[in-house]
Design a protein around this nucleic acid. Sequence first.
DNA 1: CTACACGGTTCCATAACGCAACCGGAATCT
DNA 2: AGATTCCGGTTGCGTTATGGAACCGTGTAG
Lengths: 162, 162
Amino acid sequence: MKTTSFSDMQCSIARTLEHVGSWWSLLIIRDAMMGARRFKHFQENLGIARNTLTKRLGELVEGGILQKVPASDGYAHEEYVLTERGAELAPVLIALGQWGDKWAVHENGPATVMTIRESGEALPRLWPRDKDGAELPLDKIGMRWANGATPSTWTQEKEDTE
Amino acid sequence: MKTTSFSDMQCSIARTLEHVGSWWSLLIIRDAMMGARRFKHFQENLGIARNTLTKRLGELVEGGILQKVPASDGYAHEEYVLTERGAELAPVLIALGQWGDKWAVHENGPATVMTIRESGEALPRLWPRDKDGAELPLDKIGMRWANGATPSTWTQEKEDTE
DNA sequence: CTACACGGTTCCATAACGCAACCGGAATCT
DNA sequence: AGATTCCGGTTGCGTTATGGAACCGTGTAG
């Protein structure tokens, strides 16, 4: 046995989760987006075990989400910064954050705020839209297999799923 | 020792991941969005271990993402359907899927497609926008601690992070 | 030359996960 | 009714993942 890998799956969601689906990954990426660059930053801020952090950082570098760059300040050896590929995970984090803001509120309110840099305003809700830019209600969104197939066992319920 | 819980963290991202951050959770939710309702559906489609599936479904019900409803067809006992809370995770899945479509493409192309139901068109890219609806480039988005604080150890690099 | 900071690595204990076998209730078959 | 199958789930066991703390090598500071 071993933990199942999603990398053989054809689904894009699964393939993304293969990169960022493990327990600490997205929080590490979040910290990187907030300016964390060094091992110590991540470790102290997250409270993650050091060996686990080592492994996660390695996986993220391996997966092209983070890259190691020589450090600028005198002390550090190398630092971790997001690649373009990694930075483009921002919508995922924004979506996660906004869901949490609405559905999993901490008693002291949100700790992190996503903003528009120039104005400092909070980022508007990230929500699917149609071509004209109008927000789409959830029941107007569908998800289906690319080949049009539905697993045979689902067929019976399929009609009332619509 | 035990796996660290994120539920004490104040960050909304962490609090969301506490609900959906474990290895299979988001794929289960994805399947639920595609119409899977029964234990068997999830199990066969995902290939997840049955005891793990039991645990995940229980956690998702516990967390108010899924709910158990009496089954309509003769056979089933109870079925799992998304709550409103669960359905609102759609942006997260869309963001994950679109990232994968771009950055983690399978040789045979994407397996799942997110569409606008009426027209059947693919869903436009989910991307942060400003108040006027214009897409924001990533460098115009900021993320910061709500109290304005930056962990002391980050301070030295802070300026070139901007 | 000593002391310390930093980024890891190593070792161990425990929790999480995969696999397969087993169980009990309900529907189906005969 | 009795046997069979379907189904959702549990149990036992082995492997992997994660947490905790100690240890190490390199570079800095004094």
